[in-house]
Amino acid sequence: MADAMRYRELRNSGISEGEIRGRVDRGQLWRPFNDTYLPATSARQLPHARLRALLVRLPPAALICRQSAAPLHGFGDFVTRTTDHRVHVLLPAGVPRPRLRGVVVHETALPAEPCLVDGVWCTSPARTAVDLARTSGRIDALPVLDGALRAGRCDLDTLAAEVALHSGLPGVVKLRELLKAADAGAQCRQESQLRLIAIDGGLPRPQTQIKILDASFITRYVIDLGWEESRVGAEYDGRSHLTAERAQHDRERHNWLAAQGWRMRYFTAVDIYRRPRHVVAVLRQALA
């Protein structure tokens, strides 16, 4: 048994009810969902074993989607993190909805192209990004689009085509506008949000990943976000525990950039989520 099987399939293979219970108790079998079993070795070795096991319990048309599909495509870190660990599943309208603990079913009348990633059938990268961004707030939607682009699984044209397919649905107008600001250069969710705050605050659109060259024309540092012509940089500072070595590196970097005429401004999660006006005011003053 290399992949997920249901109780009936185990019994038909000649394993008794008592032996099934015994294997579960001994840790030889893993039961991620009721009536779904995986050998412990497969659970450890197979990528996304829990999702593969879940698909055994669902209708054939089911696809892993939204928050649960984003990590499969490489941009899960750009999705707003919550304590909700439920699996999100997409089903065509009219298909009976299974009732499983820990599973959220989304019905859709819009056909979704199946995509196979590590043995898991899921929505395509563009569909995953659009479904997520369309149903998220503005501050959380842009990071999803940035993440999809950064992962290299789709481009702006693919995202725009997917948005067009969703025409008339809630959140689509917002996405058409945000696509103009989407950028594959963002390295994390907060960088995307910091860039959006600047744009929404009426500042010129900042550049991403600005390479700063030394006297030998070799890249010395890279600034996450900034305005090269004005020599103003903005970065998200999410480090909660700095080592002495890292602190020294950051001081050297800051001093070197300052010597080159760069005015660096650093912002925390508190600034981004609670004081966006402060962020805009600080950047506007630096640009002025």
Rank of each mutant, 00 (worst) to 15 (best):
L242C: 04
R263M: 10
I20R: 11
L58K: 02
P170N: 15
I197A: 07
H48Q: 15
P276W: 00
L149Q: 09
I20P: 06
I218T: 11
P32S: 09
E17W: 08
P125W: 07
L196Y: 02
H249W: 10
R81M: 03
L54I: 14
S230C: 03
D157L: 12
T41N: 09
G76V: 08
Q207H: 13
S68K: 03
A151Y: 08
L90V: 02
I197S: 03
E235D: 03
A286C: 00
R44A: 15
M1F: 12
A288T: 10
D35N: 15
G226S: 06
R189H: 14
L10S: 10
G201N: 08
A151I: 08
A259H: 06
R134I: 00
E17N: 12
R265N: 13
S16P: 03
M5W: 09
L142Q: 11
E177Y: 07
A133H: 12
T108C: 02
H166A: 13
N12M: 14
L100S: 03
T41R: 13
C65Q: 09
T135V: 02
V144T: 14
L90R: 02
R97K: 14
V222S: 04
E229L: 11
A181W: 14
I210G: 10
R23S: 07
R195L: 07
A4I: 10
W121D: 04
V95H: 03
R6A: 03
L149I: 11
L10H: 03
V104H: 07
R50L: 01
R52Y: 01
A184F: 12
P143Y: 06
P125E: 09
W262H: 07
P39F: 12
Q248G: 02
R176Q: 14
G202E: 12
A160N: 09
F217A: 13
